[in-house]
């Protein structure tokens, strides 16, 4: 939790009772899965919980106060989740150390976002917003970096905020769905996807590794240990990768790609 602690949120019984009810209902429904071609889509209780919570926000059941009070509870829940991930990593520490080179190098895979998303963004006609949008997965540290470098109302700043909002609202659902689907569809090993799940966001990592566990239950501890370790690594190194590699690379590619297109339009 950051420097400022708000007090008395535990007294918001309305909020906690609603969440308890949502948890009971969604856990009672349990996991559903269905095949789409050769891949499997997994629907986990946490995905229903997110959607029910969001729907409740628009009913009189949830007031503005509950929505504000829910925020610190996310931080505490993620703390408990990380404690749990810690005690899963502990016993498999020898495995993690053995897989250290893969863990470190796959951090560079985050550059995949530039290679895949930047050309499409430019092709769709997005201007300098594309730099903010595609240089990283746009979690809090990267929003800070872009704001610091380009300013809040710059095109780059608008771009990073757009992807940040998308990730906040839709990121966990999206990662949960594509992780299970891609791991069952492609020949890549579930443990590779486990490492890929750690992109520096607790909820996205949980959703992605959760559906991997549901699809490959016999690898449960290894999947969580690798995903958790990778997420910690992303949290601690991600910003430096962005500053020294990703952002300069995005700038460079943006210039090359838009430059070439300008020449074409002149011809």
């Amino acid at each position: 939790m950051n420097t400022e602690t708000q007090f008395g949120i535990w007294k918001d019984w309305r909020l906690h009772a609603i969440v308890l009810l949502v948890v009971v209902i969604t856990e009672a429904i349990g996991t559903f899965q269905f095949s789409v071609g050769p891949g499997v889509i997994l629907l986990l209780p946490m995905l229903y919980a997110l959607i029910i919570g969001l729907v409740l926000y628009f009913t009189p059941v949830i007031k503005e106060k509950q929505s504000k009070n829910a925020e610190p509870l996310i931080v505490l829940g993620v703390a408990l989740l990380l404690a749990k991930i810690g005690v899963i990593i502990g016993p498999s520490l020898p495995d993690i150390i053995a897989a250290g080179p893969a863990l470190l190098l796959q951090e560079l895979g985050n550059l995949g976002t530039i290679l895949l998303a930047l050309p499409v963004a430019i092709w769709l006609g997005i201007k300098r917003e594309a730099i903010g949008m595609t240089h990283s997965v746009a979690r809090e540290p990267n929003v800070g970096l872009i704001m610091d470098k380009y300013g809040i109302s710059s095109p780059e700043g608008r771009g990073v905020m757009a992807v940040y909002i998308f990730g906040t609202v839709f990121g966990a659902v999206f990662m949960g769905l594509i992780a299970g689907f891609l791991a069952t569809l492609t020949p890549l090993h579930p443990l590779s996807f486990a490492m890929a799940s750690g992109i520096g966001s607790g909820s996205m990592m949980t959703a992605a590794s959760g559906s991997l566990v549901a699809a490959f239950p016999n690898l449960e501890d290894q999947i969580i240990a690798f995903a958790g370790a990778s997420n910690l690594l992303s949290l601690s190194t991600g910003l430096y990768v962005s500053i020294f590699i990703a952002l300069p690379l995005t700038e460079k590619l943006y210039k090359v790609m838009t430059g070439r297109r300008d020449q074409k339009s002149v011809e």
Binding site: L108, A117, V120, A121, I126, L182
Partner: peptide, 26 residues
């Protein structure tokens, strides 16, 4: 809609990029 397309590719890109590198090294 353009933002939704690009943002989805941002998440997809990092996920696939990391998985490919992890697969090769592992």
């Amino acid at each position: 809609w353009k933002t939704l397309v690009v943002a989805s590719l941002v998440l997809l890109g990092t996920f696939i990029g990391s998985a490919l590198i992890a697969e090769i090294v592992l």
